[in-house]
């Protein structure tokens, strides 16, 4: 047992003192929703492999208001993840040089968000087309 008790500065709630860090914690926190949603999909996949009755039970469980409420929250959280993912992208990817000029941050973020919007529309359209 060490008799020395060096002072350790308490760091509880450090991120709440600065809006920049609050935003950081919120966008890191979106991972909890990504994990929970992946777990729901994984459960569905396992139920699908167990046959029609198991699948239908999973499908009707999703109609539970708690599940719908969770999915509304997850939609907001993951949409925010999309926004921050492309907002940070100018700093997480190597510089892109076009015509001797470095591509500005807004162009990278803007094209990322445009691609995400197109991907979402394509996915919805594809599902619509497949089941219509």
């Amino acid at each position: 047992m060490n008799k020395r008790r060096p002072y350790v500065r308490p760091m509880d709630g450090w991120w709440r003192k600065n809006p920049f860090f609050v935003e950081y914690m919120v966008h890191e926190g979106t991972a909890l929703f990504v994990a929970a949603y992946a777990a729901i999909l994984l459960t569905g996949l396992v139920r699908l492999s167990q046959g029609e009755a198991a699948w239908n039970a999973w499908l009707s469980a999703l109609k539970n208001p708690w599940y719908v409420g969770f999915h509304l929250l997850a939609l907001a959280a993951i949409a925010y993840h999309t926004y921050t993912w492309f907002k940070i992208m100018p700093r997480t990817m190597p510089p892109v040089v076009v015509g001797g000029q470095r591509l500005p941050a807004w162009a990278i973020t803007g094209s990322g968000l445009a691609v995400a919007a197109a991907a979402s529309a394509a996915l919805l359209g594809l599902v619509w087309g497949l089941v219509r």
Partner: peptide
């Protein structure tokens, strides 16, 4: 998840159940 996450959640969690 940035590209397809929100729409997937909408389809499987909101549009189909409701």
């Amino acid at each position: 998840s940035a590209l397809f996450g929100p729409m997937l959640v909408f389809i499987t969690g909101i549009a189909v159940p409701l």
